[in-house]
Design a protein around this nucleic acid. Structure first.
Lengths: 184, 184
DNA sequence: ACTAAACTGGTACGAGCGTCCCACTCTCCG
DNA sequence: CGGAGAGTGGGACGCTCGTACCAGTTTAGT
């Protein structure tokens, strides 16, 4: 029951964070089926019972790991886009840790079956759309923004899963960005 | 070892098909984690050993179930689009069995970690793109076609996972289809 | 009718899983 | 400095899993 409110003691809070990080790592390395109590505990160099002590259930652990994953991913994306621009996203996709992203999408789809995760999934989409809106200097609910997001999203997932040649992705992304740019 | 070549006897072939159907059903109802030898056998009203007899491993069973799933899904889609047009796709997404589609996407993402499934995943994307190309009466490798597919794909997945209001999806889809239509 | 191959189905094994339990040790605060 | 609550860790329970085994039955071809 110590999981809804953070553990009151410093060391406990740190241990909890370590477990969460370990869960994210496992999630990104081998999919969410690999995020078991034992695997997480072992990765965190903590005894098995620590996972059940700091998290009421595996589902909760997964939900928090998911939330943390999209948080870091969004900040990474934000940094990349402001540095290199939208069209360079294709290279980011190719550069970034493939398994990490696969873990994210895996959990995203899984969110369709779990209301708790669903809420987090919405945060992910909203975050991405917001990011694109910022870059295009347009309101997030503008169709242009939403449509560009859909293209980015699919190209990203497709690249991850199917590993098609990169230049195709880059070409399509460039066209999409041009289309989405407001007429001068 | 009877799994690479189809079982020579009629009854065996039928049993194999029943198992496969049961696997697809389970996959679509509760995700691919639910596709276990026991569950499949029970659903098919066959003894446990039948699954290992007709399929060398669970992975093979899953791969074949995936292939069958995308096959049927593609023909369903084809029928819907020729009957109702592309913009009505939003309603198809809403109408169709949600869990069924979730199972498909679940396996699609999973394909990113499994080369065998990856090949099948490519077939899925190619099939969808081809369908859209047909409807637009344009070559499948035309950027307009590919871009429209990316929009359809994301909206579809998003609708499934996040269950946003349907009218948004419909609006965006309409705009995307208009954009993709060749200038008159 | 007979033999080999295909098929059947009940059972067993070893492993991993989530969760629970409990005796123990710390750490903080009055 | 003492007690209460937080934290610890080793073990155990009950379950499901993939896979293997094998004695028995059916089927197909000669």
């Amino acid at each position: 029951m110590t999981s809804h409110t953070p553990p009151p003691q410093e060391r406990g809070r740190r241990r909890r964070a370590i477990l969460l990080t370990a869960a994210v790592e496992l999630l990104t390395e081998a999919g969410f089926a690999a995020v078991t109590h034992r695997a997480v505990a072992h990765r965190a160099h903590l005894p098995l019972a620590a996972t059940t002590y700091y998290f009421t259930s595996r589902d909760q652990l997964l939900a928090e790991a998911f939330a943390q994953l999209i948080q870091t991913e969004l900040t990474t994306l934000h940094a990349w886009i402001t540095d290199h621009g939208l069209t360079a996203l294709a290279d980011q996709i190719a550069t970034a840790d493939r398994h990490r992203q696969l873990g994210l999408w895996e959990l995203y789809v899984h969110a369709g079956r779990d209301p708790v995760l669903q809420q987090i999934a919405r945060r992910w989409t909203d975050g991405c759309v917001h990011l694109i809106a910022e870059t295009l200097a347009q309101p997030p609910d503008h169709p242009r923004v939403r449509l560009l997001y859909t293209t980015v999203s699919t190209l990203w997932l497709e690249q991850l899963v199917e590993q098609r040649p990169l230049h195709e992705t880059r070409t399509l992304l460039t066209i999409a960005v041009e289309n989405a740019s407001p007429p001068t």
